[in-house]
Design a protein around this nucleic acid. Structure first.
Length: 728
DNA sequence: GAGTTTGAAACT
DNA sequence: CAGTTTCAAACTC
């Protein structure tokens, strides 16, 4: 109902309207504040103005927007782009002209920050930034109200009656408070850094600080000139993003000219009045932001000198700066329709460096999202409902806890970058074809460091360690480290190819064609294979609902009833080894299986899934060791019993299971706490849910096929279906 | 690490 | 569609 016009009018002619409004008149009659002053107080978010109509605008909306904005910086919600906020903005073209000016000022101010004064400078600047952010009544309606607007108004503002009285001393006091707060946050930051970034909590801290500052500065006037830089600097400095997160910010800023970028939102006065001015502003802001980001680094490093842990921090930062967050690579048009196709595994460089990523909304969101989002089929998605931060935190923690090896072997680097983008929303992004194998991979670093953290092996060169590292890497990113010799990795024999991933250096394949440089070949081959079997690249393991529907198997009603889409055909392994895809996938056999002598611990095809049922229904039931092991695992993930084959497969690789009992068990879990910790990410129910959910979205046609009575694999429909193993 | 086993994928 | 071959992972030693 609030049309832009309304908003705009309300913003531009707010004074007259307010004055004309009965409410205003009434409040004005109650308030000693002069109406003119009221206008000013609007922008300053003066506490006294609460008695005036401005209080209406200084409602929790402001806080809400502020919080949402802060959160959006850290956890942009793809479903809630910031852009709409701008739509409500009341910015005028007037602000556009201010942008450049203010931006320049910002740059100057940033440049003026010396290492020693950086912290103080940030502190001093912060209040204004906040004020500008939230002080304006107009900004109440538009969270993204530009700082420049406030600044502009500052210059013309008429000092409010209360503000002048408390200026000097109060400001100093506030600055002191703010600085104290800032230092506290810096300490928090350091602590978080040392213990691994507790990003969420840090955000909360910052948010609290903001609130505190806002309150403190509600009495403070708007005569301070430094604004945006402070805000930006503050964000940059205080948050001191873990590299990947920082990169996210950079990405968000640089990649999203659409204006949905979060950081630019803070400092960039995006005007609603015109696209041209908008673009100009954005360009300006982009440049400024780039510079500010650089400044940020300076500030950070500078502060590092001051901090007790400065050296450590500095090292960490310098290393972190080398990290390039991998981003999802997008598929070229040929297969855009088929969302489940291979995408370039290119390393997603920070956009502002190469600008190869198309700045679209989705791109922003995708960048905001963690790699897990949009991953194809077997790709590991660590994202969960809270996943983004969880993963970030975890990874960052791992990275922070142990100094990374700045020179990661490229093979390990690339292993985690084979991310297949299936999300159609991400298809809008340009494909980045540059593999960028030389980039340090955050996840892998984290994993690597995690290994070190575990203390299991200190020797980086230990074969065992290498192996485990590779496995972790492979698992974490579901980089199928294939070993194809003759298939050229263009057949489903190749796990990489089957998973919709490009082969990477960890692979030991020969004559591999499953690489971005052979994309055409890969896509063509995929087409051919899919023409033969539409489900060829569909997930092999289907969730309970799907499988139950598809197979009509009553035994699949169990929560742990994920089933292999085709069923196995085991004859000698008794479905007790990973030769069996059902077992490998951590699912029980179903009537679709044609296995002989099925002993699948996850559920036999004859329906003897007592294990699962009992596990699900009664934890008290004692079973043999193998069943018990399975039970525990399934209890932990009762809601998502499915364990992706790749995970299991990679998990146990190199950890050969000598015992049949162990073989019967669930995917071998890391024996060390380290491993458990690492894999908590991937074993989390949410993660598992993602694994299952993503393919559904990505391969709708396939899933439709899945639901069809006819299976692509005619063998599945053979009379063997009803054959019951004699042993069972 | 080499060799064997296994079962899916591919082929006929 | 069934049988066979090919293939690479899983597994054993």
């Amino acid at each position: 109902m609030d049309t832009p016009d309304k908003t705009h009018i309300a913003a531009t002619s707010s004074l007259s309207k307010f004055e004309d409004s009965p409410v205003f008149n009434y409040i004005n009659s109650l308030s000693p504040i002069d109406p003119i002053k009221f206008v000013q107080t609007d922008h300053s978010f003066n506490s006294l103005s609460f008695t005036s109509p401005s209080s209406v605008f200084a409602s929790p909306q402001i806080i809400s927007h502020r919080e949402s904005r802060l959160k959006s910086i850290l956890s942009p919600d793809p479903l809630k782009p910031e852009l709409p906020l701008y739509a409500n903005g009341n910015k005028t073209s007037k602000v556009d002209s201010e942008t450049v000016r203010v931006s320049d000022q910002c740059a100057e101010q940033l440049g003026g920050l010396t290492p020693k004064s950086s912290a103080r400078g940030v502190t001093a600047e912060l209040p204004n930034a906040i004020k500008c952010d939230f002080g304006s009544p107009a900004s109440n309606l538009v969270s993204s109200d530009s700082i420049e607007t406030s600044r502009e108004r500052e210059g013309a503002c008429v000092p409010s009656s209360f503000a002048q009285s408390s200026k000097v001393n109060l400001r100093e006091r506030q600055h002191f408070k703010n600085e104290v707060n800032l230092r506290e946050i810096c300490r928090i930051e350091q602590t978080e850094e040392a213990a691994g970034w507790d990003w969420v909590s840090l955000v909360s801290d910052v948010d609290v600080l903001y609130s505190s500052i806002i309150e403190n500065n509600s009495e403070e006037e708007q005569d301070q000139e430094t604004v945006d830089p402070g805000m930006t600097t503050f964000v940059s400095t205080v948050l001191q993003l873990p590299q990947d997160n920082a990169t996210d910010l950079e990405n968000m800023v640089s990649i999203s000219p659409s204006g949905s970028c979060k950081l630019s939102e803070i400092r960039e006065p995006i005007t609603q009045s015109g696209e041209i001015g908008d673009l100009q502003d954005k360009d300006q802001a982009h440049d400024i932001l780039s510079s500010s980001l650089q400044k940020k680094l300076v500030v950070t490093d500078s502060r590092a000198k001051v901090d007790e842990k400065g050296e450590k921090r500095g090292q960490s930062n310098s290393k972190q700066h080398k990290i390039r967050r991998r981003c999802l690579v997008f598929e070229t048009g040929s297969h855009k329709k088929c969302s489940s196709l291979i995408l370039s595994q290119s390393d997603c460089e920070v956009a502002h460096e190469d600008n190869r990523l198309v700045p679209s909304k989705s791109s922003v969101h995708s960048l905001s999202m963690l790699p897990g989002v949009g991953l194809h089929l077997n790709a590991v998605a660590a994202t969960s409902k809270n996943g983004s931060f969880v993963k970030c935190k975890t990874l960052a923690s791992a990275r922070q806890l142990i100094s990374m090896q700045s020179t990661m072997s490229s093979d390990s680097l690339t292993s985690s970058q084979n991310i297949l983008i299936g999300s159609s929303a991400l298809n809008s992004m340009e494909k980045v074809s540059d593999p960028c194998d030389n980039k340090v991979k955050v996840v892998e670093n984290a994993l690597q460091t995690s290994v070190s953290v575990g203390g299991e092996e200190d020797d980086q060169n230990s074969p065992r360690k290498k192996r485990f590292k590779q496995e972790l890497v492979g698992e974490s990113q579901v980089c199928k480290r294939c070993n194809c010799k003759r298939s050229k990795c263009l057949k489903l024999y190749c796990e990489c190819f089957a998973a919709g991933l490009y082969c990477v250096e960890p692979c030991s394949c020969l004559d591999c064609f499953n690489k971005p440089m052979h994309e055409d070949t890969v896509l063509e081959t995929r087409r051919l294979i899919e023409s033969r079997n539409p489900l060829a690249f569909a997930p092999k393991v289907i969730r309970s609902a799907d499988s139950a529907t598809e197979f009509g198997d009553e035994t699949n009603k169990t929560p742990a009833s994920a089933r292999h889409k085709r069923g196995c055909n085991c004859r000698r392994s008794s479905c007790l080894k990973k030769y069996c895809e059902c077992f490998q996938g951590g699912v029980g056999c179903s009537v679709s299986c044609r296995c002989e002598g099925c002993q699948n611990a996850f559920g036999r095809k004859d329906g003897s899934e007592e294990t699962e049922y009992k596990v699900e229904e009664s934890e008290a039931s004692e079973k043999n060791d193998s069943s018990d092991t399975i039970k525990k695992d399934e209890d932990e993930h009762a809601d998502v019993p499915l364990i992706h084959p790749s995970i299991i497969s990679r998990f146990s690789r190199g950890k050969r299971l000598r015992s049949s009992l162990l073989d019967v068990g669930p995917p071998p879990m890391p024996s060390t706490s380290l491993k458990l910790k690492t894999f908590d990410i991937f074993d989390s129910p949410n993660f598992q849910m993602r694994l299952q959910a993503i393919p559904e979205d990505e391969t709708p046609q396939n899933h439709n096929s899945n639901c069809s009575p006819t299976s692509p694999n005619s063998k599945r429909l053979s009379p063997h279906h009803h054959r019951q193993p004699a042993g069972s």
